[in-house]
Design a binder for these strands. Structure first.
Lengths: 216, 216
DNA sequence: TTAAAAGAAGTGGTCAGACCACTCGGATTA
DNA sequence: TAATCCGAGTGGTCTGACCACTTCTTTTAA
């Protein structure tokens, strides 16, 4: 622990040290970690610094602290997602293009899931959306996609999508364009019929249309 | 700020307070936040408590601190992923099934992307994998899938997959089964030929095979 | 007048020590 | 034997003190 290079962010080093310590000592989910005071002495840093690292990990859900008892390694089985974050956090992301691509992955996956499930295809929400569009009611692009992903009943996918959406360059807006309405109507009709290919086709056209609009 | 209920986790409250403050004061990405000392006085807590909250947010990449200068709201455009996490973090996940489903979404998407791109289809890595399998070399399921997602050149998808993988019930292991080898060979061959349907079919068979194996 | 140097103020980074509130287990007591 | 008490250990928080660094102002020197 001594010859570890200290970066400018001490508490980040501590996070790393903790990771190592957990591995080295075979600390498993649910096990107790050394107390803050012990950690401080072991790592030769102040207790407040140790705490800053621990608090970070706690926000991530990687550890669990109980006053008067101690600090415990969180049970990953229960909080799967949580670890997801930890790995993400350690590194920085890249292009915004990936965000859009990934979002589209989830959207298309939703379409396919619905098409293959007669139960989901028959959901009244599709007819409702069609109606609204035909009547020129207020329909947002976002709503349509969201309903589709909701219908898949995959909350994780929904969450990922929801967040990717916020970073996509292409904003979801209200539809006023007549041509767009036509595309979406086709999409929904194909969806209801369960023809995957046609629905995906319509979806591609839609994306194309939106992107073209965005470049003007 | 006064009548806010204090939960047992003060620093979590601070995180919340900061969120509110950022919204209320219209602090945007890149803007400077009040200094730690000011925050401590404003929120009526000690500076160390404020720091614990800030450090948590920093680990998440939501803020950026520069010694001698101050604390700044991170530029989300650059670190998209990070916000992804923050939202996740606030809540607990659900079924493990969603994790598997979502992982499969990304895997299938990779297959489709590769099939549709002759450039990616012609990557030497596929022939290499085929060779290894035929020669009964050490091939891990994980490697094959990873190579496919790497080939899509979507780092975000790769990252998401990587983490989902860790939580999937079905472990990726070395392939020793002869039948499995056959399925995977078919998968790769179809991939190289670019026939989406067949490749996805093979993939489905593969998944089925793995799951069947897992139930024994 | 201008450019370099010195200084002051503000900021994050870290530490040490002090309480508090709480949990737990062993010792004491009824 | 069972209930109570108490002390050690732990996390939660605050305070005050330095340090290192950045920025801007002031002063000094050319």
């Amino acid at each position: 622990m001594q010859n570890t290079k200290r970066s400018s962010k001490m508490f980040l080093d501590i996070v790393g040290e903790l990771r190592l310590m957990i591995k080295a000592e075979g600390i498993k989910a649910g096990d107790k970690l050394p107390s803050e005071r012990v950690l401080a002495e072991r790592l030769q840093v102040g207790r407040s610094t140790v705490r800053e690292a621990l608090r970070s990990l706690e926000l991530l859900g990687l550890i669990e602290t109980r006053r008067g008892e101690g600090t415990y390694l969180a049970d990953f089985k229960k909080h799967q997602l949580v670890e997801v974050l930890s790995t993400f956090v350690m590194q920085q992301p890249k292009s915004a293009l990936d965000v859009t691509d990934t979002r589209i992955i989830h959207e298309k996956a939703a379409i396919q899931t619905i098409c293959k499930d007669i139960h989901k295809r028959n959901l009244p929400v599709w007819q409702g959306l069609l109606m609204k569009i035909t009547e020129d009611g207020e329909v947002f692009r976002e709503d349509i996609i969201r309903e589709m992903i909701v219908a898949t009943d995959n909350r994780l996918s929904l969450k990922i999508w929801f967040i990717l959406k916020q970073y996509s360059k292409v904003p979801y807006e209200q539809m006023t364009d007549g041509k767009e309405n036509e595309i979406v109507r086709a999409l929904l009709n194909n969806l209801i019929e369960g023809s995957v290919m046609e629905t995906i086709n319509a979806y591609d056209k839609w994306i194309e249309h939106i992107e073209g609009e965005n470049e003007e």
